[in-house]
């Protein structure tokens, strides 16, 4: 331990307090009852804090913009995403083709946004479903522990061990190729990661004093989970979710890379990236386009994720 005394304590010793240093101010009944700031619900407060966080708000705007473009851009362009043009193979951006053309002369502006539909849908759906399922199961395991935990964790180990490719191929066999197949396949495998992670967090949190205190006070388990555990892991979960979305988009890209992606002529960012990589040395611009959109989306999601993390953190509530 340090032997030095803190400066504050030294000062207090030098000037002892006397009664004449204090004045009675009385009490102001009106001021005591006044509500100094608006009464905000948890989510209202989170939204308020998110809006104040500039990077996060920019992230939100980018995601929203990409979402809107994915919906409307292909409708508004006069090019079809399947029309090929032998005269425009690997064309560079121009007034006709805003982002140039791909290997078969298809307009990349349209294909990028058709791809965005697929990639963003897969990313958001798969990550969200995984997060919810994994959080519930992981939370229960972590909180109750014991046999339930033991059994579920062994199931998790088994699922982890099954090659996800086999599952993808089998789901494809049943459901055919398409976005839904990829989402289902990713969910069957994906939730276990979140589950293990949330379980670990809950394991840690349930030993915290405030949980213990709540238990001693006789608060029911359900309320403890809702009021104490969930808000406290929310930050980590949001960070994790923002990592899971690129994870899902990449998983789709990987499946496309080995040829198990969605059915042609549909495309995704993963497919665009994969097709472009073969000509990296000759037409680097082909790689730049999908890479740019994947990167900026991830950047936006990450900034948003950070902002959300702070916004939902109960310990930062009410701070500016």
């Amino acid at each position: 331990m340090s032997n030095e005394k803190s400066p504050v304590l030294e000062q207090q010793e030098q000037e002892p307090l006397t009664a004449d240093m204090f004045v009675v101010v009385g009490k102001n009944e009106a001021a005591m009852d006044a509500i100094s700031r608006p009464n905000l619900s948890f989510w209202q407060d989170a939204w308020r804090r998110l809006k104040k966080n500039r990077p996060a708000f920019i992230g939100l705007c980018i995601v929203a913009l990409y979402g809107l473009l994915a919906i409307f851009a292909p409708m508004l362009s006069h090019y079809s995403y399947t029309a090929m043009d032998p005269n425009a193979m690997y064309a560079l951006p121009s007034l006709e083709h805003w982002l140039g053309c791909d290997a078969t002369g298809r307009d990349l502006w349209v294909r990028v946004w058709m791809g965005a539909r697929v990639s963003l849908t897969i990313g958001l759906c798969a990550a969200t479903i995984n997060m919810c399922v994994g959080a519930v199961i992981g939370g229960l395991c972590g909180y109750y522990g014991g046999k339930l935990d033991m059994i579920v964790m062994r199931i998790v180990d088994v699922i982890y061990g099954i090659p996800s490719l086999i599952i993808t191929i089998l789901v494809m066999l049943v459901l055919g190729r398409g976005i839904h197949t990829l989402i289902v396949a990713m969910c069957i495998v994906g939730w276990v990661g979140t589950c293990r992670f949330v379980r670990g967090e809950v394991y840690r949190l349930k030993e915290q004093d405030y949980v213990l205190a709540a238990k001693v006070l006789g608060v029911p388990d359900f309320t403890i989970i809702i009021r104490h555990i969930i808000p406290n892991i929310m930050g980590m979960m949001v960070t994790n979710l923002c990592m899971a979305i690129p994870g899902a988009i990449f998983q789709e890209a990987f499946l496309s890379y080995i040829g198990l992606g969605i059915a042609p002529p549909d495309c995704s960012w993963g497919i665009l990236a994969k097709e472009s990589i073969a000509v990296l040395q000759m037409y680097p611009f082909q790689v730049v386009i999908p890479a740019f959109f994947i990167c900026t989306t991830m950047l936006a999601l990450n900034l948003l994720g950070d902002g959300l993390r702070d916004a939902v953190d109960p310990k930062l509530r009410g701070t500016e």
């Binding site: 399947t82 029309a83 090929m84 042609p264 002529p265």
Partner: peptide
């Protein structure tokens, strides 16, 4: 790619 071109 071959399938896509023939399809088109």
């Amino acid at each position: 790619k071959i399938a896509e071109v023939i399809q088109e």
